[in-house]
């Protein structure tokens, strides 16, 4: 059954309970009605502007959201619900995350020894091999995170997934701060990993590099997915992309003329009805103020959330 996704997310919403000005409690919905599927043998690139909820999605899968977060909707792994107890047993073993920044490293532990998940010979060798591949010398093993550059930290974080043999890797912006060559090397590693029949979710701002290696691209905006489409459509051209925001992202790429997207992403503090892209959309109409259904592509490769999209 190839068609059961490794990770399948349906109508995921994440709400934070926060206290404003003393004791006034407020719920802010940072992610709403998010849908995503990651298949075996595929790389899914998640793109979207800063603050669109990409890291939260990754943390929701791993079960490491803060206590004041409420999650609704469903997250499935290999076809069955990923309960709190289940992710507890799976994380770090079958599902691994590569976090976003150096702050995820223990500041008081030498990087080499914290990359090793256990203090034994096989973990040591795996660590050393990974470090070698990412040009981290033996001396780098003995340094503390504060002695690392941003790029080095990222490579060390990437090395952590090689400690175990996961079937799903979620990489939260693995490439910024790396030079071109290193970025390609990293993407190549994920490609090989996917080709071995595993699933990879890469969160990235680097649409350019991502579309060269990924199979599908999922476009995030204001805490939801606006479109999931084949990566090749980003290379083929604008008319293969459906959502106005996806098209805008496409046109903002350097080779397509750098056209900036006007306006701002709505903040999770604003309550929304209807299409979340309404304010910035060129082709909006009255109907866009109502609930926007998802339109699934006939070949099953993705979907778009726009009434004029398909």
């Amino acid at each position: 059954m190839k068609n059961i996704p490794e990770i399948e997310i349906e109508n995921l919403s994440i709400t934070f309970k926060i206290y404003e000005k003393g004791l006034i409690q407020k719920n802010i919905k940072t992610i709403s009605n998010l849908c995503l599927k990651a298949y075996k043998g595929e790389i899914l690139a998640v793109v979207g502007s800063s603050g669109s909820g990409k890291s939260l999605l990754a943390h929701a899968i791993m079960g490491i959201l803060p206590k004041n977060a409420t999650v609704t909707g469903s997250i499935k792994y290999k076809g069955s619900e990923l309960t709190e107890k289940r992710i507890h047993n799976l994380r770090g073993k079958e599902i691994c995350i590569i976090p976003q920044s150096v702050s995820y490293l223990d500041p008081l532990m030498k990087v080499g020894s914290q990359v090793m998940i256990k203090n034994n010979k096989s973990c040591f060798e795996k660590m050393r091999n990974a470090f070698k591949r990412y040009d981290l010398c033996e001396n780098a093993e003995k340094l503390y995170p504060f002695q690392y550059s941003g790029g080095m930290a990222r490579r060390a974080l990437i090395s952590t997934v090689e400690q175990t043999e996961p079937s799903v890797i979620i990489a939260d912006e693995p490439t910024p701060g790396l030079d071109k060559q290193m970025a390609y090397k990293t993407m190549k590693y994920f490609r090989d990993f996917a080709d071995k029949g595993k699933a990879v979710i890469i969160i990235t701002h680097d649409i350019d590099i991502a579309v060269q290696y990924a199979d599908k691209v999922s476009v995030f905006y204001g805490g939801t997915t606006l479109e999931t489409t084949k990566a090749e459509n980003f290379i083929k051209g604008e008319k293969y992309l459906c959502h106005p925001y996806t098209k805008a992202l496409y046109n903002a790429l350097p080779q397509n003329g750098f056209k900036p997207v006007e306006g701002f992403q709505p903040s999770p503090y604003d309550v929304f009805e209807g299409c979340i892209y309404y304010d910035r959309c060129d082709i909006r109409c009255e109907k866009c103020k109502e609930n926007i259904p998802i339109y699934n592509f006939p070949d099953g490769s993705g979907f778009v959330r726009c009434i004029n999209g398909y």
Binding site: R91, S103, M109, T160
Partner: peptide, 21 residues
């Protein structure tokens, strides 16, 4: 802190997290 989050995400047990980090 983020490094404790990451330790959890890597499947380290609570005991191990306390001891190691």
């Amino acid at each position: 802190s983020n490094y404790i989050l990451f330790a959890k995400a890597r499947g380290e047990s609570l005991f191990n997290i306390i001891k190691r980090h």
